[in-house]
Design a protein around this nucleic acid. Structure first.
Lengths: 186, 186
DNA sequence: GATGGCATCTTGTCAACGTCAAGATAGGAT
DNA sequence: ATCCTATCTTGACGTTGACAAGATGCCATC
């Protein structure tokens, strides 16, 4: 990271992941080009393959990063379900590139061991917020409560990212999300 | 459509759209290849360009079809908000290829006139179900109610399609969706 | 401190792709 | 009968992901 160009980049793996996040925010995860990443990092066109094998390998690494970061964000939001939902939406908007890759499993290797572990950590963090709610009714309801909460947060985030929401909802995703998500918790 | 191979296909535009739906269900909308579609239809590799201009043009046509079909489905579900939500999820699962294209505006021309019209028809049909609900509270609440309903249905559908849901939710999307969506209407 | 091993990166190549330009074909109007 | 024009083919160009083979330099070992 000294800026001098040596034969060995020194931190190419990290540089490529960072460049990939930028590129995905610009053109989306599907239009990502390994050769473009190589140009951004100042290395030859075949250099990325050494670190990630192929394009799916790079996206697998990004998705894993994403699930780990999401797990942290959800854990930090504590036991408040509404806060967790708002944090979920906020994560999607702030880490748009990560989020978009995470939920396009056809682009990466969804059975990768590290990725599966990270995804399960995020899933646990997500269910933790719901299990804090008072239990009511029959068994299995808690699962469906969790799924309802996940669905509304995920749906709002996805629609926001797709630009499908009318301008009326405002500019600040956290505020808009809170207004919508609280309709479930009632 | 006689099966004989003439110089003029006769119904190439329709054949290409049908082939595209098949291909998208197999490999996703991003990995769609125009040359593959041409092979499936039995025409030369450049034939698709004549009907759709380019790849984005073909996906624009598919997205337009999708919004029109969704508008019909929602209109047919009547004034019941829960039924509309279930119909939304059912549409996404049954017309997976259409649905996946519709909400990836970076892949097509989102400002195309026909597409915008179809999308607005679908949006109107969606809001119609919510406006039938008894109004409560301040103005603007109806918009947010609609957005909450759309979010939970869209989120559930998206998570289902991404394969992100645990196996416990079952095989039949309509039943699973109803159990989840009804938690909002309470 | 020299040497060898090995991860890292480069160079060269290939098939497949989207797109464009130019030409061939045929159906229908005049 | 003739031309017009939409439809489709052929050929080409630049870009991409992937693979193979070679170049480079760090690092442990002696």
């Amino acid at each position: 990271m000294t800026g001098t160009r040596t034969y060995h980049h020194g931190d190419l793996r990290r540089a490529l992941l960072a460049a990939a996040l930028e590129a995905i925010e610009e053109v989306g995860p599907a239009a990502l080009s390994l050769r473009d990443l190589a140009r951004r990092a100042g290395v030859s066109h075949a250099a990325p393959a050494h670190h990630f094998g192929d394009k799916a390998g790079l996206l697998t690494a990004l998705a894993t990063q994403g699930f780990e970061a999401l797990a942290e964000v959800l854990a930090a939001s504590g036991d408040d379900l509404l806060a967790a939902g708002v944090a979920y939406v906020d994560f999607a908007v702030r880490h748009r590139a990560h989020f978009e890759v995470m939920f396009r499993p056809e682009l990466y290797r969804a059975d990768d061991a590290e990725l599966v572990a990270a995804r399960e950590r995020a899933g646990s963090a997500l269910r933790a917020g719901v299990s804090a709610l008072p239990s009511r009714g029959e068994p299995g309801d808690a699962d469906r409560d969790a799924l309802a909460a996940w669905s509304i947060a995920h749906g709002f985030a996805t629609l926001w990212l797709a630009g499908a929401l009318p301008g009326r909802v405002g500019e600040e995703p956290r505020d808009a999300a809170r207004e919508v998500l609280k309709r479930l918790a009632r």
